[in-house]
Amino acid sequence: MRPRIGISSCLMADEARFDGGHPHNRFLAEELGAYVDWVPYTAELETGMGALWETWRLTGQSRLVEFLSAGATPPTPAGLDGYVTRADRPGVGGIPSYDDGHRVFSRRLTTAFPFLPVSDDRVLGVAASRERFAERVFAGARLRELFSRPWRPRDLVAFHTRHKLQILAHDPARYRQAGRLVAEAGSRPCRETEAEYRQIFGRALASNATRGRNANAMHRAFRHVGRRLDDSLRQDVLGQIRAYERGELPFSAPIVTLTRHAAGEGLHWAAEQTYLNPVPADLLRRLWNADMAR
């Protein structure tokens, strides 16, 4: 299932920004755009205020800001896996706007949908940020696919099994919590289980995967992969994981090695882990090549 990402319509309408020529949006147009479905969204239009932004005053206030500041949240299209909003821009005459409507809208959106990955086009100009955003978006699409049709406990077990290491790398506490919930899935109402699993999964992926947590997940994968390798290969893989722990190798080095050995040895459990393959392979390589310091 292709991820569905909401995007501020002004980003798509302004070719000078969205055609890939602008460094902030090259990732959106040239890389991520090949793998997702964009859902253009105009906040003012959805709230009945009209499709065009009003003229900014020097404070950056508009009717949209007033509407949102009062606590209202515009409705968003159903079934989104992420949202990209426009970053703050200078106000009239280059004077910074103090309360940009896009920023307020982004805050309200995050509050109303706490598990929805929300970012702006400027933040996504940073390689590490767009990698985290892409990982969450594709994870959300897989979860949406699972619960988009009638499901049975064994379907949830299969989904959770594929995502175990990914959840562990982000949030060990919720990894254990999710494991207990999945184990009890057959004895609880499906709707109740689905709602709780969505919350645990969303909160876990929203947590940062630190170097220590990543190393822990790598060692867990190594337990499955290493037993099928000879001593020389085992030491090589283990050495890469330890070098990553010390900050001497980028994240991608041990991950690529683990993935290659898992596939070569026919280890389906490890090879199918979303931790090793969180997004399409071509997109993943571009993300890693852009950010080798993770």
Rank of each mutant, 00 (worst) to 15 (best):
L229F: 05
A209D: 05
V137C: 02
G239L: 01
E184F: 05
S129V: 10
T161R: 15
R223A: 11
A29I: 00
Q199P: 01
D19W: 00
T259K: 14
C190L: 15
H261V: 02
R223S: 07
R260I: 01
A43D: 04
A215G: 14
R198Y: 04
G247W: 01
E272R: 15
Y98A: 13
V237L: 15
A243Q: 11
T257N: 06
S207D: 14
T73E: 02
D155T: 10
L143Q: 12
R260Q: 11
L258P: 07
L45Q: 13
W38K: 06
R228M: 03
R17V: 14
Y41I: 00
A70C: 01
A51M: 13
H219W: 14
L80H: 05
G226V: 02
E66P: 00
P153G: 11
L284C: 08
V256N: 11
L124G: 02
I241E: 07
L205I: 14
L58G: 00
R149N: 10
V39C: 00
D236A: 13
V104K: 05
V84T: 04
F67L: 12
V123W: 07
T76C: 02
K164M: 11
D88A: 11
A139I: 03
R108M: 06
D88V: 15
E44N: 07
Q199E: 15
L143P: 06
G93C: 02
R57H: 10
D100S: 11
G179F: 03
R220P: 04
L165E: 12
S106P: 00
R174T: 07
H268D: 13
E192F: 12
D282W: 03
F18A: 04
L45N: 05
E145N: 04
Q61Y: 03
L284H: 05
N289E: 14
T274E: 10
L276E: 09
N289W: 08
S187R: 15
Y175Q: 08
Y197V: 02
T76A: 11
V225W: 06
L68Q: 05
G71L: 09
A217W: 04
P77I: 00
R130D: 06
A281V: 13
E46H: 13
